[in-house]
């Protein structure tokens, strides 16, 4: 039972990192990305590669994952500078689909659908961390650090600039703000921190494959942010916890027929998304209505 709870804590913490980093660009910069799973995936593959071929120390795997994701995120920054709204959503969608194809085909790096097997456990200062209870310390600490970083950023002058851009891009530009630079930096930071979640995920599950990094995963993370409350501090965490707990909660209902549990879980997930958007579009934590 204990192991089960810690297992959930780990998954929630990892997805919460993704939600918090996506919320950073969605809630503060107004960049609605459907490609967040790309950076999650790249982080996971990169750290798995480093762990298997160089050394499984998190002092190596996590920075490598972050750098790879930061570099790739420039591709996402490109449309973010050119277009807004539905065009950007479509562009990020395009990037997501392209990335899934590459994750499936670049077999020497990703293992394709077969995935990367036997990824070594995370090595923290010489100690191998793989039991759910021990890993929970690592994942929660990582989440807290990521949140603290983002919180500090949001309350700095950089954060004020972001909000100015969110409210009115042209006004911000006329105040002499370097809008393209600020947008690019925020995308890079978000992607790099999302890769931290990828690195943790790879070492925790010891197996990764492309299915964890598809459009569905991007939508799941986006749903966490929106259901929790876009642009709030607690929202993404609440959303991540809720959506990760949902399958476990449903699996306790023993009276449901085995073969329909998967479908019912999906229906509840879909219905929840829809109803929440109708009755509480600001999310659970968010304000009732948005300006």
């Amino acid at each position: 039972m204990e192991a089960y709870i810690f297992n959930l804590v780990n998954l929630i913490a990892i997805y919460a990192i993704l939600a918090v980093t996506l919320n950073f660009i969605m809630g503060y910069a107004g960049i609605y990305s459907l490609a967040h799973a790309v950076f999650f995936g790249l982080g996971a593959y990169t750290s798995a590669w480093v762990a298997q071929n160089v050394h499984p120390s998190i002092l190596l795997t996590i920075p490598a994952a972050m750098m790879a994701a930061a570099a790739l995120s420039l591709l996402l920054a490109l449309p973010a500078l050119r277009v807004r709204g539905e065009y950007f959503v479509a562009a990020s969608l395009g990037l997501q689909v392209l990335a899934v194809t590459i994750f499936s085909e670049w077999k020497s790096f990703t293992g394709g659908i077969g995935g990367v097997l036997a990824i070594p456990p995370a090595n923290v200062f010489g100690i191998e961390v793989f039991k759910p209870a021990h890993f929970a310390i690592l994942s929660v600490v990582a989440l807290v650090i990521v949140m603290a970083l983002i919180n500090a950023l949001v309350h700095s002058s950089f954060g004020r600039n972001l909000r100015a851009i969110h409210d009115s891009e042209s006004a911000a530009a006329s105040f002499g703000k370097n809008v393209p630079m600020i947008k690019t930096i925020s995308v890079v930071i978000s992607a790099a921190l999302a890769a931290v979640a990828g690195a943790l995920y790879a070492s925790y599950l010891s197996f990764i494959n492309v299915e964890s990094f598809t459009l569905d995963a991007s939508v799941l993370v986006m749903a966490m942010v929106i259901i929790g409350g876009t642009g709030t501090v607690a929202g993404p965490i609440v959303g991540a916890a809720l959506l990760m707990l949902l399958p476990s909660l449903i699996s306790w209902f023993d009276f449901l027929p085995q073969t329909e549990i998967g479908a019912l879980q999906q229906i509840i997930y879909g219905l929840g998304m829809t109803l929440l958007m109708i009755f509480r579009p600001g999310g659970i934590v968010g304000r009732r209505a948005k300006a």
Binding site: G115, F207, E211
Partner: peptide, 16 residues
């Protein structure tokens, strides 16, 4: 029939 959900399921079977 997918590896990812299977690993989650196996974790549950083994640990819980």
């Amino acid at each position: 029939a997918l590896p990812q959900p299977a690993v989650v399921a196996m974790t549950k079977l083994v640990n819980v």
